[in-house]
Design a protein around this nucleic acid. Structure first.
Length: 136
DNA sequence: GCCAACGTTGGC
DNA sequence: GCCAACGTTGGC
């Protein structure tokens, strides 16, 4: 069964619009073991929220994993994982970090608990709640 | 721009 | 193998 994720990106580096413009993006450059484990656990067809960090601080869209289990092309030692993702749809209304923190049912999610984790897992329940908050 | 949280490094 | 120092990330 498909799992759900949340991927953080700084919009001035790589934004949702960049992903849409390219059609498919490689999620690389992750240098955190926990995030790497999450990346390695992703399978084609899994869905991920696309979150803008540092600026915006909100979930803007949903992407699907199109290629899983690849090596990070930016890593010369080839020990870090990466995946490719494609944009699926935009949220009708972005869900901000503020809203997520204000929602008691989302208090335990990795995004809130581990604010510095760039790739977090989202449970199916949390996924549903955030989708509803985003107007989907 | 600041600072807290976390990960990594290196001396012992 | 412990832990202090340092660097980086990300929310504010």
């Amino acid at each position: 069964m498909a799992r759900y994720w949340l991927m953080k990106s700084e919009p001035f580096k790589y934004s949702w619009d960049d992903l849409v413009a390219e059609g498919e993006g490689t999620w690389d450059g992750v240098r955190n073991h926990r995030a790497k484990n999450n990346l390695a656990a992703m399978k084609v067809g899994d869905e991920a929220f696309f979150y803008h960090s540092r600026e915006g601080l909100e979930i803007v869209g949903i992407a699907t994993v199109s290629v899983d289990g690849i090596m990070d092309p930016t890593d010369p030692e080839q020990k870090w994982a990466a995946v490719k993702i494609k944009p699926k749809c935009k949220l009708k209304t972005p869900v901000t970090l503020k809203q997520i923190k204000a929602e008691p049912r989302l208090a335990d999610c990795e995004l809130v608990r581990l604010s510095r984790l760039s790739v977090a897992e989202i449970t199916p329940e949390e996924w549903k709640i955030i989708c509803e908050m985003g107007g989907l």
